[in-house]
């Protein structure tokens, strides 16, 4: 497998200035992550951990302060570089209805990429019907307006538009948010089918661990704008190396209430980006925190082949079998 997308020490800073004060917030810092061809990476973390910002930064929608994005081996630096790869990337929005232009019919919306990139399209109605059929929507949907669609239909239309130009990389921001469980499953199956058919790579951004477990080959856990753990999904789920990952997994609802682990529940709120904690940023909420964690920031280090964690005590934590 060759790398399709490589993020190297990516940082996004936002400066908030209220004269005479000036604060710089590290929304994302030091993100190093690769996405192989045909791979699905699940990006998980709490609200405010920077997942969505990362998705936007790697599409060039957010100013990147440091680090590089490589797509298919080519570094993307200028806006023109990002524009060049637009036809090969797509973004699926969390709010599918809002991502469709309210005064455009669904048929016009899904064929929009062809018009933007001046791709030949002899009969746009036929093309729209084709694209809609591919995502399981009847052809007569083409004449509907977004507000006339159900959540699941809008999501399918969003998938149809994202895949119109057969991109290589699809970034899916909460692809199942706000859908019924049965519809969630339909959307996931649709995404999986299309992946097999066109050899797509997905980056799935979500806080839904069940979803990640179901679709992702690898998982990347974010906390406060940093990656705290990456690795193959099954291994990370069965034996997490970072206490934060372990707590997230423990916080998942379990069918059997006796299997719930309350001792691992994460205490408190996610800290403020304005005043990042010293040392390991998770120390205030970590069950294992020691004096060392309060002063010394851990690096994201290799703990096993293909696995990385940002914790001083990753090995101890794993041995405890938390």
């Amino acid at each position: 497998m060759s790398a399709l997308l490589e993020l190297d020490r990516l940082s996004v800073d936002l400066s908030i200035s209220r004269w005479p004060l000036r604060t710089t917030l590290n929304i994302l810092s030091d993100i190093t992550l690769t996405l192989a061809r045909d791979e699905t990476v699940g990006l998980v973390g709490e609200s405010g951990s920077g997942k969505t910002t990362l998705g936007r930064a790697l599409l060039g929608l957010q100013h990147i302060s440091a680090g590089t994005v490589r797509f298919d081996g080519t570094p993307l630096k200028t806006a023109a570089d990002f524009d060049r790869i637009r036809p090969r990337t797509a973004l699926m929005f969390q709010d599918a209805v809002a991502s469709l232009s309210p005064r455009m019919t669904v048929g016009e919306a899904v064929t929009e990429p062809f018009r933007i990139h001046n791709r030949p399209m002899p009969d746009w109605r036929a093309r729209a019907a084709e694209l809609l059929e591919e995502v399981g929507l009847p052809a007569d949907m083409a004449s509907r307006y977004p507000h006339e669609l159900s959540g699941g239909q809008a999501r399918r239309a969003g998938v149809a538009r994202a895949l119109a130009l057969k991109p290589d990389l699809v970034i899916a921001d909460e692809p199942t948010a706000g859908l019924d469980v049965s519809v969630q499953a339909e959307i996931l199956n649709l995404m999986a089918d299309l992946k097999d058919r066109y050899g797509l790579s997905y980056m799935v951004i979500t806080h839904n661990l069940a979803l990640v477990r179901h679709v992702a080959d690898r998982i990347a856990v974010m906390y406060l704008g940093r990656l705290v753990e990456t690795g193959p999904t099954a291994e990370v789920f069965s034996n997490p190396a970072h206490p934060y990952t372990g707590s997230l997994i423990a916080a998942e609802p379990k069918p059997d209430p006796r299997k719930r682990r309350t001792d691992l529940a994460i205490k408190g709120e996610i800290p403020s980006l304005i005043r990042r904690p010293s040392g390991c940023e998770f120390h205030g909420r970590c069950p294992l925190a020691t004096a060392r964690c309060r002063t010394e920031a851990p690096a994201l280090r290799d703990i096993a082949p293909g696995r990385k964690a940002r914790c001083h005590f990753a090995e101890t934590y794993q041995k405890q079998g938390a």
């Binding site: 637009r86 929005f93 809002a98 232009s101 990429p113 990139h117 538009r161």
Partner: peptide
């Protein structure tokens, strides 16, 4: 979002 979507598509 729909304007952002256009930007992502490269409009």
């Amino acid at each position: 979002d729909f304007i952002l979507a256009e930007r992502v598509m490269g409009a």
